[in-house]
Simulated assay, not measured.
Amino acid sequence: MSPPDRGELADSWIPWREFLGPVLPVYDGPLLIEVFNAIPEFHNSLRLTRRKFWIPVDDQPVPGVPSAYDVAEDGIKKLRAELAPREEG
């Protein structure tokens, strides 16, 4: 799962049911949550319009900017919520 705008999956505009509906009945494998960060070797050729998600241990925490791990965890929670059975009513 990759956010179309390379931002955070948890607040992306993916039409969850329409997108995954045809896939999940025939696929029984893991789903990958992508957290996109441009790595130094590609900074000059890629355009990242937001601050890099900082990585614990590798980077200094940035106030007001979530870590890559927080972004991944929020994406997993969002995906699970979207895939959970919905109550009729």
Rank of each mutant, 00 (worst) to 15 (best):
M1V: 10
P3N: 11
P4C: 09
P4E: 10
P4G: 12
D5W: 12
D5Q: 12
R6A: 09
G7I: 03
G7C: 10
E8L: 07
A10V: 01
A10D: 07
P15Y: 06
W16K: 03
W16F: 06
F19C: 06
L20K: 04
G21C: 06
P22L: 08
V23L: 15
V23K: 13
V23M: 15
L24C: 03
L24P: 04
P25C: 07
P25S: 05
V26R: 10
D28P: 02
D28S: 13
P30C: 07
P30A: 12
L31M: 14
L31I: 15
L31S: 02
L32F: 08
I33M: 03
E34T: 13
V35L: 04
F36D: 04
F36K: 08
N37R: 12
I39L: 14
I39Y: 12
I39E: 12
I39P: 08
P40Y: 09
P40M: 06
H43S: 11
N44E: 15
L46M: 13
L48A: 10
T49L: 14
R50I: 02
K52I: 02
K52D: 08
K52H: 12
P56V: 04
P56G: 11
D59W: 04
D59E: 09
Q60G: 09
P61W: 05
P61V: 01
V62M: 09
V62H: 06
P63K: 10
G64R: 07
S67F: 02
S67D: 03
Y69L: 15
Y69W: 11
D70A: 15
D70C: 02
D70T: 13
V71C: 04
V71P: 02
A72E: 01
D74R: 15
G75P: 02
I76C: 07
I76H: 05
K77C: 04
K78V: 00
R80S: 04
R80C: 07
A81H: 10
A81C: 06
E82A: 03
A84F: 01
R86I: 03
E87V: 13
E88N: 08
E88T: 10
G89S: 14
